[in-house]
């Protein structure tokens, strides 16, 4: 069975090399010393198994916990062609992190995901297959459809998430089931155009990206994903997040 596996890897390697597709993974980090080696190990594993050409761009915003030093070690292990370090001096927000990352990306596709292990790299080959299948401009992971789901959420969190999603679907009719998720694959030029236009912060940024994508007539494919809430570190959903989400939603409602 090892031989079968090897030959299937070689086949898919040939396939993607023929097409010349390359996938740049953008990993914005802030205090992810624990998670970064693990996410990179998983990325290398799944890209290796599926044979697609890839690079990982780590955009560290001056983490005080030494994330960058860990990233440098990982670069030595996996090579400078696979792991690119493009740090910034301080925390400057997600939108600019993507712009910064895209500038250094050599792939024709860009994958964005969280570095905290809530997004599992095993889904990336499915994103890629989905994209090829329909020629989509972007493929979005969804927690709300098919086998998709979450781990580590209590009833309150689920209720807020489903309620917010329902409200958004009613108000914006965006044609995508998961708007606040941030595990997505974009054609590079599509991501460039979208990032230019998006001004929101936090959860709303991801939502605006997909709403604007629809507005500009881009096609959106979806892949069910399981979202495993932060293994290390904390994730919070407080009143502030909810208020800024509602504000952002209403802004999009009135302007798009």
């Amino acid at each position: 069975s090892a031989a079968v596996q090897v030959s299937s890897v070689m086949r898919s390697t040939n396939k993607s090399q023929q097409r010349g597709d390359k996938y740049s993974v953008l990993l914005p980090t802030y205090n992810e010393r624990e998670n970064l080696p693990l996410i990179i190990w998983l990325l290398v594993k799944y890209f290796g198994d599926s044979g697609y050409d890839f690079e990982i761009i780590v955009i560290d915003d001056g983490s005080p916990d030494g994330t960058l030093q860990v990233a440098e070690q990982l670069q030595k292990i996996y090579g400078e062609d696979r792991i690119l370090l493009r740090p910034r001096a301080k925390k400057l927000g997600l939108g600019t992190a993507y712009i910064h990352g895209i500038q250094h990306a050599t792939g024709n596709f860009v994958i964005i995901m969280d570095a905290d292990l809530s997004h599992h790299p095993k889904f990336i080959p499915r994103f890629i297959e989905k994209q090829k299948e329909g020629g989509y401009d972007l493929v979005s992971g969804t927690r709300y459809r098919g086998d998709g789901g979450v781990y580590g959420w209590d009833l309150r969190r689920k209720l807020i998430s489903r309620g917010a999603n329902f409200l958004t679907q009613v108000l914006l009719r965006p044609g995508a089931s998961d708007l606040t998720g941030s595990f997505r694959l974009y054609k590079k030029e599509v991501l460039e155009r979208l990032v230019e236009r998006c001004v929101s912060k936090g959860y709303v940024f991801q939502m605006e990206m997909i709403v604007r994508a629809r507005q500009l007539g881009y096609s959106v494919g979806e892949v069910p994903i399981s979202f495993v809430d932060r293994v290390y570190g904390e994730s919070k959903l407080g009143g502030n997040e909810i208020v800024s989400f509602v504000k952002g939603l209403l802004t999009l409602f009135a302007t798009t």
Partner: peptide, 20 residues
């Protein structure tokens, strides 16, 4: 709708175990 979707929200126990 929201009630049904909350009740049927998948708990990905296996995914969490696999990750660990």
């Amino acid at each position: 709708t929201v009630g049904y979707r909350v009740a049927t929200f998948n708990d990905c126990e296996d995914a969490a175990k696999e990750l660990q």
